[in-house]
Simulated scan of single mutants.
Amino acid sequence: MKKISFIVLLAATALLLMSAGAFAATKVTAIKAFLNGDIKFVKDGEDWRPKDDRGQEVLPISYNGTIYLPLRVIASAFNFPVAWEGSTQTVKLGEGSTVTNLYSKQVKAEFWSEKSYDIVDKKQLVFEGKQYNGAYAFAAENVGLGWYEGSPNLQLDFGKKYETLHLAMIGQSAMKVRVLNENKQQLAEEISLEEGKVTEIDIDLQGSQQAFVSAYDAANQAEKPLLYVLKDSYVTSDPLPTSR
């Protein structure tokens, strides 16, 4: 399975992941291909339809007797790290890429909460009409306690130092979230989450190997709601862009 998917990844790279700048290069050749909606897919014995990051179905391309799919669609389906470096027109595959998502085996998670889950059941992970493939979830504290040293949190160890953490999160209630490094230094301002809405944000890790994600329930419900840290979140060696 890995060998097959890797071949598809390489083939799809050449056709479907080039930037506008790449098409201006001298080694690019125009082709005539067709979107083929009649093709069916089976993944691990079950019917499967390729979808993009927004949950929209992606039609495969038929060209010269070969079927092609976008690289990121395949990478997401098989939890395979992939990164695009536009400055050098390079696709980076595997753990050596500058981008590592939370599906990676090198990322270790530890919970400090009375309720915590590593969720793999996809039926629980459809948010705003999009299917996600995995998440870490833990119970937030009640607002009355505010922040304290033992606040419920998720500790992430990325295996090595990174510069930027891209977090995708959703809460069962309106929440306040903090992100700290291994020295318990706060890395960004408090993040406000709306109930049931996926929020994505970039955090400057400042060369950290670990991060703590802590949360409390801004609505102060009696039943402590869950915060989902989606495994589509990732870390990268690239620094956070400087605002001008």
Score class of each variant (00 low, 15 high):
E149D: 14
A168E: 11
T164Q: 12
A174L: 06
Y136C: 07
T100P: 00
K92T: 05
Y63T: 00
K105Y: 02
F41N: 00
F6I: 12
A33V: 10
V143H: 10
L102N: 02
M18R: 14
E141S: 13
T100M: 12
G96Q: 10
S5L: 15
F80G: 00
S19V: 03
L227S: 04
Y148I: 05
K40F: 00
S76F: 01
Q206T: 02
D217F: 07
S173M: 06
K92W: 13
L35H: 08
D202W: 07
S97I: 03
V73Q: 00
L240D: 01
A75R: 00
L69T: 00
V213A: 09
Y103G: 01
L9S: 07
E200L: 01
A174D: 14
S76R: 13
P152G: 09
F34Y: 10
F212G: 01
A137L: 08
Y162C: 06
A30K: 15
A215D: 08
A14Q: 14
E46N: 09
P81M: 03
S104N: 14
A22W: 06
E195H: 11
S87H: 08
G146V: 08
Y228S: 02
Q89V: 09
K92I: 03
A135I: 03
G65K: 01
A168I: 08
W84S: 05
G37E: 07
K161A: 15
F127Y: 15
P70N: 04
Q185V: 14
P50L: 06
S5C: 14
L167E: 05
A25W: 03
S192I: 13
V42C: 03
R49V: 11
P239A: 09
L93W: 04
G146Q: 09
K40W: 00
L16C: 14
D121W: 10
Q209L: 02
A14V: 11
R49F: 03
